[in-house]
């Protein structure tokens, strides 16, 4: 067992007294690694809570710089960060929040060429991206690499989230939606808007799933799509099964190589 410093015992005391965490669970968290792809609406709250929880290594992927229009929902970035790389802005805040966390930054977009080697380094992946080409790429890469993933999407006053643990009975994102919608047929947050708190609620659910996976406690959102409607303040969980003819996670998948789908012009 690792030696906890007095500071660590104090910092994580509210975890340590939990029956489902304890010293063993906190040690698991400190030895774990989570990759967060997209440090925006979903990714920043997820990063914040995972870092506070003492996840030992947090990877942050994003090529974008902080813009003023991000600040209404991307709470880790401040006004003084505008123009800075999002991954750098997030890293600074995490470093000052919890020195136990090693932050690794990837200031570029993941593609079919580089995604597999990046996700391989981590225990769990959080998809906080804002477009379908990235969401399908991440799903497919995680299925191929056998990497557990929390997928989520948010728009307007709504969100959806699921957890995928490849290799078993868990349906993947492609079992739910076989292919991305045609570019432009489903609006992005930039076009349709999103209420600022949405990323906080859904990104925090993603962080919760990562923590439960690491601790091996509770039931994950595997085989379930959780939808959140903030206007009705309603959560719904629908049960979904693996699709026999899924293009990526079936026994004889049609997709052999990762695909870089074209981005809708308005999403760029």
């Amino acid at each position: 067992m690792m030696d906890f410093s007095n500071e660590q015992l104090q910092r994580y005391s509210r975890h340590i007294i939990l029956q489902d965490v304890g010293v063993e669970g906190q040690e698991k968290l400190l030895k774990s690694s989570v990759l967060i792809i997209g440090t925006g609406g979903l990714g920043t709250p997820a990063a914040q809570f995972l870092a506070a929880a003492g996840v030992g290594k947090v990877g942050l992927v994003d090529a974008d710089k902080v813009e003023l229009s991000n600040l209404q929902r991307q709470v880790l970035h401040h006004t003084t960060d505008v123009g800075k790389l999002k991954v750098e802005s997030a890293k600074e805040k995490i470093n000052s929040m919890n020195p136990d966390v090693e932050v690794k930054t990837y200031p570029y977009y993941l593609t079919s060429q580089n995604i597999k080697e990046v996700i391989r380094e981590y225990d769990f992946v959080i998809d906080g991206t804002d477009n379908f080409p990235a969401k399908f790429l991440i799903n497919d890469a995680c299925v191929i690499e056998g990497k557990p993933l929390s997928h989520a999407g948010i728009i307007k006053f709504g969100g959806q989230v699921t957890t995928i643990v490849p290799g078993g009975d868990t349906p993947c994102y492609r079992c739910m939606f076989p292919q991305p919608p045609k570019p432009g047929s489903v609006p992005s947050c930039k076009e349709a808007g999103v209420i600022g708190v949405m990323g906080g609620v859904v990104g925090t659910i993603q962080a919760t799933e990562a923590i439960k996976y690491i601790l091996d406690k509770g039931e994950l959102l595997t085989g379930k799509l959780l939808t959140y409607d903030a206007l009705k303040m309603e959560f719904r969980k629908i049960n979904l099964k693996k699709r026999d003819n899924c293009g990526i996670c079936s026994d004889d998948p049609e997709i052999k190589e990762l695909i870089d789908y074209e981005q809708g012009a308005c999403e760029l």
Binding site: N131, G153, P181, C189
Partner: peptide, 30 residues
């Protein structure tokens, strides 16, 4: 994703009086 009375169904499924139909599109924002 098409749900009829709480079960996932295909788009070819026939509907009957009183069915509860839920239609979920993918959500791509972040």
């Amino acid at each position: 994703i098409i749900m009829i009375n709480g079960q996932r169904k295909s788009e070819e499924s026939l509907l009957k009086e009183g069915d509860r139909v839920g239609i979920f599109p993918p959500v791509g924002g972040g």
